[in-house]
Design a protein around this nucleic acid. Structure first.
Lengths: 198, 198
DNA sequence: TGCATTTTATGATTAAAATCATAAAACAAG
DNA sequence: CTTGTTTTATGATTTTAATCATAAAATGCA
């Protein structure tokens, strides 16, 4: 998103996070802009009985957690490292200064927020009105376009666990397992030693 | 929100829409920036068996439909006038020119997108993991802060129909009616001749 | 290499919201 | 004022995904 040169010029520091480390926590006020150098970060909520909902998964080069930063509101979700990660951390004031002095970065931020809003619009409609098969397929097809799924001779490898698919679509893991099997029977996707291809 | 002076300077035209008129349709490519002068617009989807999901409701002064405009993607939902409305329509090229030449407007757009992303994050988590009472209350409390609910001696008047609440939370109208009654019994809200107060 | 944990899997049962049916009250339009 | 439509309401029934229980396979790591 923001080039290494520019973000470092404004005083960003690099920080490493181990797997399962918390980057920030639901309810806290935002102090920084975060941009992933390497690794994988998920943003998620837990309801009262511990059930998780994954808001999104972010990869190298992507930023996350900006909306509350712009609004001075508390984080609505947690950010957790799914695997070891290295992240640029830029204090809010420096970030705002960077934006002011580099109007083109604003456009990048807008495009990024627009992309995420688009994803949320599509998935919100899916989750609230569509049945499991439709939801899972939509998530997978979105993932092919916007998450970093790799294509090989079997098609696109959907490298999410059944649990992750459930946490992204609001379904329980058993339902996802059964749904994926049904979708395979219908020829919508392939299962090759437990991995899902589309 | 772009000032009347500025938006007109860049060639926006005013257009009126009657109740139930379509402003744009799901699947079409965006050509314009839209900003409401007066009236009320809803963005919503219909699933295969006609069930509606309302993405958001927008009021005077607010803009809508920008994400696909920035991304050159098809609209993921329809925009429909809930009541007679007047809207500024600014062609994409003019809008982009306006943004380039007025960097402060970019910040406004960012804040607006951030706000909508925040709402979607909160509601997505609600819809996928919370039970009806929790969902309905969350929507109402969000509405008090961000939709234009009026306060009187009974509290905030939630001027949504039960059907609208259902379409915003992914619940059926009968479920909303029963849920609201339960919430009243629990003292979370008031029902005064069928109107809901909080 | 062995052991603990995670992931995938499947069957049986349950619970909760959707669906179906029906109607009264409120509101809007002519 | 009358009539048609929308909104709110309630009871009975059904459906579907969640839950519960259990286990094999795969993976991670000490």
């Amino acid at each position: 998103m923001i080039t290494v040169e520019l973000i470092e010029k404004y005083g960003a520091i690099k920080k490493t996070f181990d797997k399962n480390d918390l980057v920030f926590e639901e309810g806290n006020l935002p102090l920084n802009y975060y941009q992933i150098i390497s690794g994988e970060i998920k943003m998620s909520n837990y309801n009262d009985d511990g059930r998780e909902f994954i808001q999104g998964i972010f990869y190298s080069g992507q930023s996350f957690g900006e909306p509350p930063l712009f609004l001075n509101q508390k984080y609505p979700a947690n950010a957790i490292a799914v695997e070891n990660a290295e992240i640029f951390i830029l204090p809010k004031e420096n970030f705002m200064k960077l934006l002011e002095e580099n109007p083109k970065v604003s456009i990048k931020i807008i495009e990024n927020l627009a992309q995420r809003l688009y994803y949320k619009s599509v998935m919100a409609a899916e989750i609230s009105t569509q049945e499991p098969e439709h939801r899972v397929l939509k998530l997978i097809d979105h993932g092919i376009a916007y998450f970093n799924f790799q294509k090989d001779q079997n098609g696109y490898l959907i490298n999410f666990t059944r649990q992750q698919i459930g946490d992204l679509t609001g379904l329980r893991v058993e339902t996802v397992i059964r749904t994926i099997k049904t979708l395979e029977k219908k020829g919508e996707l392939k299962i090759i030693n437990r991995k899902v291809y589309r």
